[in-house]
Design a binder for these strands. Sequence first.
RNA 1: GGGCUCCUAGCUCAGCUUGGAUAGAGCGACGUCCUCCUAAUAUUAUGGAGUGGAAAGACGUAGGUCGCGGGUUCAAAUCCCGCGGAGCCCGCCA
Length: 630
Amino acid sequence: MSSPYAVLKNSIEKGIGESLAALGYSFQNINGTIETKGVAGDISCSVALRLSGAAGKSREELADRIASGIGRIAFVEKVTTENGFINFHLDKPAFSKEAIAYIMKRREGSVRSDERKTAKMIVEYPSVNPVHPWHVGQVRSAILGDVMSNIYEACGYVVEREDYIDDLGLQMAEAVWGTINAERLGIERDAKKKFDHAVGEVYVSVNRLLEREPQLIGDIKKVLASMEQDGTYESKLSREMAEEYVRAEYLTAFDFGMYHNVLIWESDIVRNNLLGAALGILKEKGITKRPSEGKYANCVVIDIKDLKNLPKELSGLREESKVLVRSDGTPNYLAKDIAFHMWKLGIIKDCFLFRKFMESQPNGAPLYTTGPGGDRMDFGGGYGAINTIDSRQSYEQMLIRVVLDSIGEGERVAMLKHLAYGVVELESGPLAGRRGTFAGYTADDLLREAKEMAKSMIKKGDLMGAAQRESVARAVAISAIKFEFLKVSPERKIVFSWKRALNFEGDSGPYCQYTYARAARILEKSGLTHSGIDGADLSQFTDERVFSLVKLMAMAHSMVEKAAAEYRPNVITEYIIDLAVSFSRFYENIPVLKSNTEEEARSKLAVVSAFAHTMRGMLGVLGIEAIDSM
RNA sequence: GGGCUCCUAGCUCAGCUUGGAUAGAGCGACGUCCUCCUAAUAUUAUGGAGUGGAAAGACGUAGGUCGCGGGUUCAAAUCCCGCGGAGCCCGCCA
């Protein structure tokens, strides 16, 4: 069942198309000339302006001829023209009735697609190096990934949320070395401290020590080499530490209401020979070579100039070769990432074994992990994949695409999207894990501060109990944080400020929650059991203050589709603010419970109820909880 | 050397992919927004009480060479070219 808005838009497009055809014109992308925010009418079309030159007629004349050729369209009361625009005026009562009935039937689900796609989208986030707690930049990454996942789910896709655990990197080696040499660092590990914070202290201390004694890097590289060998003490310790880290990290993720399906460990990419298979394919396709002399002697490298369809980003590079396997035989990050993406897109299958990492996350679902040990499971092999990774890694992400394209997988690569977001900086400079500038700006700090602030804003005289106060504060805090990060375009960098991060007013999450709570209070007070549109006084919908709200609500799902197509969650934050403002206007001007007749009250209550469902559904897509009172 | 991103109101940002009617929000600034009681000259100030689904709100006003210069077009914040400013990337790191 399509939404009335979708029906309306399709039939307008069809109506214009038929009228154009009857006049002997053709125009591609009529849909692109239709917009809903015109000056006159409810929906307007600028096709006559574009065609007037070729048609040799004035825009006004052409618009009139097209308009008069349009047949009857569902929900459209009349068609007018002005300045060459064709304006469609809706039959407000008829459209409102259908739109609200549609929402009431599907409730929060009205923002989601009816269509269940079988295609799987894999979303990777936040893939934090397991050596320090999430800082505010990684909060942005995690929120973006999580909400993109929600958006694709709302569009009907099967979504697989993956987290890449980088347990073989140099930074992990530093943390492992620091743990082995703890007394040398002079830090005592506080066993009560959350492990991500504790390991962060070790990591930062090691880096401080390295600045004074740079020669220690040799020792650390030895640790790294042992870590890469299966069965060594260092490899076991590394995995143990990383697992403990992930458990601590996920306490934070759970606090933010984020859940994953599966963890992919870098060490398992090597151990389970996904890497070997990937390198085999590259070699077979003639993409890689192994020079026996020169700068890259005994390395496995890709010569950029051997790749097909080179984009201009890859011109004028400083180095013409990219190393995949070092001369000592160890693979670098790029090699493992290429292999990982071959698995993600189904180019290589069935290499991992999976087991449960957690029996049950707070949402009730288990969290799986790649080996060691376990069973074959149906992870990976996505129709498409989205990588939520900051824009500094665009070059590397693009290389993966070009390499996969060069082995003839262009079709799959077309569905691989790098959602490149701008970094989050502090006013004092960049957030550097290495230098520990995240101190005081971790995800846990942020949430704690936001909760404190939310609590202080709950009025003293409020009748809430302690437990409710706590849960409201938590919901409000999360909504403030998520909304602030989501409302700016992903590509923009953000300079973090507490004032903005804890925004509870204006364009904010709490404001949206607040309008929902107001609607909930009205519904509660009304004692309404049946809030359907049957028997309502439809003349109420001719009031623009009512109808503009209805029209906005009807567009909810199309906004989710737009956010998915553009990979821009801020499409939804913009929409949801419009929705909240529109409801506020309605609420300020139209008394609901003091209506003249029962039929009138019924129609207004139906609007309030439809608003509540739409807002709840949209907030849900953003990972924000709708609360009945605050 | 090459490439990527950003530049829109005092500040923070939407809008640009798909050109369209008057370039939009929020913050900040200024102003307005229920009833009753409360001194003198008062539709005032101050203090107090109350009501409603509501003040964690609503409305209004002021604030713009859309970085600059060309071009395309009936029409450019939006597309193209050039320039400038800010940031980032191109490693046998990850």
